[in-house]
Design a protein around this nucleic acid. Structure first.
Length: 215
DNA sequence: GACCAGGCACATC
DNA sequence: GATGTGCATGGT
């Protein structure tokens, strides 16, 4: 049997197995941006509750949300955990969005990807994964999102060392895949799907869907 | 009741 | 540069 061992072949395997994931779960780019902050080290289920609170209060717009006191933000996003620090982070990001782009995602969309990424990273509370999630899923930029699942799964299959830096892992994917937004979008989502659905329930990796695919 | 979840900043060495 | 820690809710 021919061993499958490229990043693209792993992707194709996952895609044929699970099908399209159609990420990000969220109705608008702004909702995706908010979700990207709230989901930091947090189960998505809890993020949904927090976003639901914001929707119920009709605050899910860049300007309106920025007008809210941080304490009120914290109260509303409480179900997503780390709510005090996340309220500050969200406020900082909203401040960035409103002061630099008048709260307009269209205006922000005029900034080239590499420059915008650096600007996002300069906002306290926005790290690499959050910035890249915003770029890919809210703004449709071809940026590969790396998360803890990606690191675990692919280091386990010996594609790179577990301790590699974020940028090195991201480079691995971006150099080994077509620069295709659709692939980047689905790939990350598929890794999350695999991790939740398979890895979490099979810590010993028995019958791993990828086991005879890596080198 | 322990353990985990789609990180990040910060302190310390 | 590497390692450790606080942040917090809700599901398994």
């Amino acid at each position: 049997m021919t061993k499958i061992k490229t990043a693209l072949q792993i992707y194709q395997k996952l895609y044929s197995h699970y099908g399209p994931q159609s990420w990000w779960p969220g109705d608008t780019p702004f909702e995706i941006i908010v979700g990207a902050v709230l989901t930091q080290n947090t189960a998505w289920r809890n993020v949904e509750k927090a976003i639901e609170n914001l929707k119920r209060e009709r605050l899910l717009s860049p300007r309106k949300l920025f007008q809210q006191p941080v304490a009120k933000l914290a109260k509303l996003i409480r179900p997503s955990g780390f709510y005090n620090i996340k309220a500050k982070r969200l406020h900082k990001l909203l401040e960035f969005l409103n002061q630099k782009y008048q709260g307009s995602l269209s205006r922000m969309s005029k900034v080239p990807t590499a420059i915008l990424r650096n600007k996002l990273l300069s906002v306290k509370g926005i790290g690499e994964e959050t910035a890249d999630s915003i770029l890919l899923y809210a703004l449709s930029r071809p940026v590969f999102v790396v998360d803890a699942y990606t690191r675990r799964v692919f280091s386990r299959h010996n594609f790179f060392p577990f301790k590699n830096k974020y940028s090195e892992i991201q480079e691995f994917f971006e150099l080994n895949l077509p620069k295709d937004i659709k692939i980047y979008n689905e790939y990350h989502a598929l890794i999350v799907r695999l991790s939740k659905e398979y890895c979490r329930k099979n810590p010993n990796c028995s019958n791993c869907p990828l086991s005879n695919l890596s080198n």
